[in-house]
Every structure is written in structure tokens, then in C-alpha cells.
Design a protein around this nucleic acid. Structure first.
Lengths: 331, 331
DNA sequence: TTGAAAGCGCTAACAA
DNA sequence: TTGTTAGCGCTTTCAA
């Protein structure tokens, strides 16, 4: 027996008041006379009434939902972003509408446009270049980008990628490495920034950076790329990987090729995903504070929703985490 | 200049037809005469009209959204569940409303009740015992549980936990281990099933299982528990951990205690999270097909939404993955 | 094939 | 403090 849920009218009738009174009561909008309040309380409890959020949203125009689009929830970096964003959302009584675009560029725009209609605001992680992202402005919803948005008047949260790569390069130089390779992911917008950072550092001492591409930001791609990088004509002493997943895969494959990390090659990642610590050897990386990024992005969005709009880029500072996958050059 | 988005009435006016006609056109409900169709198409394109999903939902009662509550998105097992569920949802044009309850039991019920009002159906992962979950039936929405629900008439998806643990115990017995410990997580409902499975196997050869508790399903908890298990009075030859995260943490701490895995102690996990493969040593575990669980749960829910309701438990078969963290007993 | 009209459940002026 | 009333943007009979 499926009971239809009671409406505000049922409550009004049961309590002997008007629907407006019930509405105000539900929203805690004002004070009520004792008898009315008592009757309302009783009627609501009796019927098990809960106001319909859809109907309310249609009028108020607010859904208390935040849309979050990410490229791949399997990537621990994004997992942590979600975790952080969710924590702040929950605290402010918002819910997350999650869209995992699965690294599928074509799908991204329609998915985001559809999402925008059902939420109060969006946090977007996308690989789309700024020049092709103009349409985001037409969504007409508060937005926060998870990256630096140079050309767009949209607040954003990110990390100093140039500095992160610079720090890794510096660390490797300090260890005595001279031939350093970069195993990147060209599709990512931030890949260029990282290359630039590493180059900048090597330039200072007159060294060149060998750039390779893994074609995907995954451990599997790192495994695949390893032999290409390590068994090619110019074998590097150290490899800076685009992210920890690629580095993890790279190290695993190196082991099966009989190449020892860090004795034969030093390896670094970026992201500080939770499992780099448990890898063999533990991964040297740069902490980019993924969870805090999610938190700040959500906080910015909620602030914007509350009228404290503020367009600007917030940049977290990278922090080098030295573990066992990097060691002094041997020669 | 913020342009208000056009309504169905604007389109009707621009096209010189009624709102009913526009509505039907938007829903592809029927055929139209050529001139009407042309005018509609033009007006819609001109105004950039997109129908308001909220208003539609209020009438139809459907939101094309599925609620998914999980205990902790940071746990790769749940990450994969989300991934799988999302894939199927996307395919059927549904969106995921994600709630991460953060292992917070008290919050669970109100969060789920609120969520239920905004979605067409829910997939729920919870630690609440069946006896305390009666209220879920009153949500009046199609539901799928991510676990076995003995007492509840709710479809569910899970894994054969008894068998999973049995397999691990058997594997360790085959390797010659006699003193086997279990490092569990008592809060989890399935913990008992796993204990039972391992006990059953050991019973067959007249051995006992030493049961410990890690108090959390995390790598950190595993690290913490390691010395307690390994430096206590009865040091085990092998440890079956509740999940891979605990096992990963356990192995890391073992290394810093100077205990070698697998020479001094064999360690296993459960879940087959993506990073067990990159750990040192690579982790022996049981694959529970997290992603497929998410997919199936979503598929069941979508079927139920389409009227093909079917209450029943679907159980995936565990699969033993032997890697390097287990080895023959040395004595 | 098209349109008129009656709501969906609720909020928000405004009046009383 | 409480009630009346007019919608929010859309779908859905039902009639034309």
C-alpha cells in the first residue's frame, strides 16, 4: 500500500490554518502563537510531512546543490578534491551533484550545461582551453574553476605548477643528476606549466630537459611509457612524471625491466596521492593539497552564492615530499 | 547584463504557437506539421531555450537523478563503486547525487532521508544493521543496498565475504602457515562474515584464528595495529586483513619494525584496490569487483525504475589474486 | 495536429 | 500573527 506523501495543503487542513502559515512555519520565518504552533507541530508529526524540495526550488530558484565535474574519480587527486568539497558542502547544508566526465572531452560541454540547470553553482575541472570555454560564462551560475583561468573572469583554485616542477628539478639537480627527463601528459593544460618550470630550473645550469609523453594520466600509461623512456637512445638518470599515478606505473615497469629505482634512475611524481607512501620504493613527490583545493573551491563558491563574489585565482603552494624513489646520482 | 533565461512561454510567443505545442515538441511526444516544426526550431535556437528540469520534475515526479550514499569516497573500493555506478547512470541519462557520509553513523539517516526527496532512487552503502534500517522502506523510493540484506525486502548487491576469507585462509594454509591472525574492522557488518569464513577453513584442520581489530578501515589504522599484532605474545605467521588499506598500512609499519613481508609474515588484504599492485611487496588480495558492483547496483535500480522490480541479492564471486606479500612458511 | 485550461506543491507579496 | 491570492515553468487532459 503506497501512501502518497502529504502536501502542505494536507497539513494546513489538519492543523486548521492556511498554507501560508504552514509554509512560514516550515521555513522558520517568524514566530507563532502558541496554539497555532502546537497544532502545526502535531499535524506535521501526525502526517509525517516533509516539504517538497523541488517545489520550493522552483520558486526560490535555489536547490542547495552544487555541481562538481571532474575528469576521473578513479584518480586519487580528484577523489581528494571531492572529499574536501563534500566536507565544506555538507557543513553548509549543500549536496554534491557529481559528474565524472571520464576524460571525455566531447561529452563535457553538454553534461555541464545540463548540470548547470539543476544546481546553484558549479565547480569545474576541465581540460578545455580558456579560449574554448567562453560558453561557461553563459551558464549564468556562479562558477569556480579547478585550474588557473587566465582569460576568463571566473574565480579559480589551483596550484603553482611551474614552481612544483621547478622544485622537483632543483631536488634532482641537487642530487647530482644531469640528464633529466620529463614524462608528461600533453592533454593536460597544466602540462606546459610543469615543463616550463622544470626547464627554467635546468636552464640555470645549462642543461636540457628531455620531454616524453605518457598519453594518459594513469599508472597503466606510466608502465607503458617506461621502456620507451628508459631503453631509448638517451637514458635519463632521473624522471619527473606528470603525476604520481604515472610515476607508480613507471616504477613498477622499471622493476620488471631490471632497472632499479632509485639506484639506476630517480623517479618523482606530483600530487602526493595517498598510496605513493606505500609504493616500492616510497615515491618522492610534490604535495598539491588536493583536499584543501576542493575545500577552498567549495568555500569560494558558497561565498559567491552568498553574494561575496570575488574573481581571482587562489594558488596553493606546492611542498616537496622526499621519499625513497630519488637518490644521489651514482658515477 | 544578466539575461533571464527564456521560458516555454517566450518560445510559444516567438513561434506563434501554444505552450502545449512547445512542450510536446520538447518532449518529442508526437509529429508536427512542417511549418510549425520549422518555427519551433527557429524560435528555440533563436532564444537559446532549454526547458527547466525543475519545473518538469515537479510535474512528472521524476528527476533523472540517482542518489548514492557511500561511507568514504577516499576508500578506493568506494571510488570504484562510484565509477561503475556513474558509468551506467550516464549511459541511461541519469546523474549521480553523491553523499559521502564520512563514516558518520549519526548523520546517515537524516542525510539519506533528505536525499530521497530529490532523487528517483537510491543506492545505499551503510553500516546500519538490518533491524535498524526499517525506516528505509518508508522512503518510498526504489532502493538498492550495497551489501546483503537478509531481513529487508530490498534488492542488494554484494560479494560472498565468507568465501573470500575462506579462500585467503586456504591459500595461507597451503603455504604451510599454522598460526594465522585476522586483523578486522568490527564496525563493518561484513566483518563477522569474513571471520566466519576464515574460521571455517581453519576449523577443518583444527586450527584457531587469532582475531584483532584495527578500529578503522584505513591504511593509518593498519599501521597503528601492526605492532600490537606482531609484537604481542602470539606472533602470527600470516595476517588476513579486513581490507587492502589496512594491509598496506600494516606492511609499511612492519617494514619499519624490521619485520620482513613475506619472509617473516605473510599479509593479505581484501578489495583489490588499484594500488596494492604498486605496494612493496605487491599485495596478495581478493578481487571483489568493486566497479562491477557499482554497475550492477545501478543497473538494478534503473531496472526497478523502469518497472522491472526484482528483490533479490546478487553476489559476485571473489577471486584470489596472489602477489608477493604471501609466501611459504619458513620453519 | 494544435490549443485552452487546470494544476504540480510551494513561496511571497500584500492585506487583514 | 495569520490568511488570500497570484504565480514559479512546466505537463497533461480534453476539446477543437
Amino acid at each position: 500500500m503506497k501512501k502518497i506523501s502529504p502536501t502542505i495543503r494536507d497539513v494546513a487542513a489538519a492543523a486548521g490554518v492556511s498554507v501560508a502559515t504552514v509554509s512560514k512555519y516550515m521555513n522558520g520565518a517568524q514566530r507563532f502563537s502558541a496554539p497555532v504552533e502546537a497544532k502545526l507541530k502535531a499535524a506535521i508529526a501526525e502526517l509525517g510531512y516533509r516539504s517538497n524540495p523541488l517545489a520550493r526550488s522552483m520558486i526560490t530558484g535555489r536547490t542547495r546543490t552544487i555541481g562538481l565535474t571532474i575528469l576521473d574519480i578513479s584518480n586519487p587527486h580528484f577523489t581528494n578534491v571531492v572529499k574536501g568539497a563534500n566536507r565544506i558542502a555538507l557543513r553548509h547544508d549543500y549536496t554534491l551533484l557529481l559528474v565524472d566526465t571520464d576524460e571525455n572531452q566531447a561529452r563535457e560541454r553538454p553534461l555541464i550545461e545540463a548540470l548547470a540547470q539543476r544546481v546553484d553553482g558549479l565547480i569545474v575541472s576541465s581540460r578545455m582551453p580558456d579560449e574554448e570555454s567562453q560558453w561557461m560564462l553563459d551558464l549564468d551560475k556562479p562558477l569556480v574553476l579547478l585550474r588557473r583561468s587566465e582569460g576568463l573572469p571566473i574565480p579559480s583554485v589551483g596550484i603553482d605548477n611551474r614552481l612544483a616542477a621547478y622544485m622537483l628539478a632543483r631536488h634532482l639537480l641537487n642530487l647530482g643528476h644531469r640528464h633529466i627527463a620529463y614524462l608528461g601528459f600533453g592533454q593536460a593544460r597544466i602540462n606546459d606549466e610543469r615543463i616550463r618550470g622544470a626547464r627554467e630550473c635546468l636552464d640555470e645550469v645549462g642543461l636540457a630537459l628531455d620531454v616524453h609523453d605518457a598519453h594518459a594520466p594513469t599508472a597503466h600509461a606510466g608502465e607503458h611509457a617506461c621502456s620507451r623512456v628508459m631503453l631509448g637512445p638517451r637514458r635519463p638518470q632521473a624522471v619527473i612524471c606528470y603525476n604520481d599515478l604515472i610515476a607508480l606505473g613507471f616504477m613498477k615497469e622499471a622493476a620488471s625491466l631490471g632497472i632499479r629505482v632509485p639506484q639506476d634512475v630517480s623517479v618523482t611524481g606530483v600530487d602526493n596521492v595517498p598510496y605513493g607512501e606505500y609504493a616500492a620504493p616510497a615515491l618522492t613527490t610534490v604535495d598539491i593539497q588536493s583536499e584543501k583545493m576542493g575545500e577552498l573551491a567549495m568555500q569560494k563558491l558558497i561565498d559567491a552564492l552568498a553574494g561575496h563574489a570575488e574573481i581571482g585565482h587562489s594558488m596553493f603552494e606546492p611542498r616537496l615530499i622526499v621519499r625513497d624513489s630519488t637518490a644521489a646520482a651514482s658515477h
